[in-house]
Amino acid sequence: MILFEFEHENATSAEEAVTRLHEIETETRFLAGGTDLIPNMRIGIAKPAHLVGLGRILREPMTVDGEGWLKVDALTRLAEIEHSDLVTSAAPLLAASAHTVAGNQIRQRATLGGNLCQETRCLYLNQKHDFQFVEPCYKRGGDCCYPFPKNKKEVCWSVYMSDIAPALMAAGAEVTVLGAGGPVRMSIDHLFSGDGLRPLTLNLGEMIRYVHVPPMGKDSAWGYHKSTVRGGLEFGMAVMALTFRLDADRESCKDARIAIGAVNEGPVRLSKTEAAMQGQRLNKKSLTELAEMASAEVNPLPHHGFSKPHLRDNIRVYLRRAMEAALARAQQA
């Protein structure tokens, strides 16, 4: 139940939605699946005066172009993505990550674009504030930080917990952002500000219109793991996604991309570890060392009751396992 009233209208096209967002004078938000926004409105951490619904916009079917790029309408529901044969073959990382999001009912409503545009999370933030943590924190426009009281006003260590963002980052995906000036295509890496207060670089009235995933070559490997306590439903304590290519020797690595999610204000690439993988012969020993390096390179925020050392431990083991699985899959192919 949301305890304030707001306007609502449905847009019939993405362009119309963007136009309307600029026309309406009160604070307006796009509403896609609503599985992030509506709970946030319920607890009053988002209080838009007006919603522009995107649910009536005709969704374009997913396609693979001549060069093998998968193009996904950002309004596509996650359930459709996780069960799509096309996505599973063209962008297995995307399918695998969509499969791990929340529970089935959420995946039926949540959209790809909405998943990427989700708010950051923090125990103190994601609850009602009727009688607990009443004074607004920095994120809520106030003047304190509950978990990290020494933080300065411009610093919010809430965590960006999309399961899909790291997967798309590791896959080298691009997004088309639709704004008043028309569509702009860019690397997904540029979508994230790394700022907990405003985690996305999107401006007012901009929406993610498409997600483009490059083809996986025959020599390509991918791995994905979402660490949870219960194996489902909840947000990840850490999310790991990676891709690399194998040289002709089927052992040496090139073009590695590793993205870690759910432990910082945005998904992060591990550039140092990626560089170390270049030309590296991958085997149990080297993967152990690389995972060790990755675990040191990542700088997780303690969040949701998980300590920094434990998150490092978790990432060290599961990243190695994800790399091992990726290597085994690629070598079998």
């Binding site: 125990l123 103190y124 439903l233």
Partner: peptide, 21 residues
């Protein structure tokens, strides 16, 4: 989880009851 008498995880996402998994 509590801190100074305040409850940190007053939701079923963060208070983890067993799932079917």
């Amino acid at each position: 989880m509590t801190k100074k008498g305040y409850t940190l995880n007053p939701t079923w996402l963060d208070y983890r009851m067993p799932l079917i998994h």
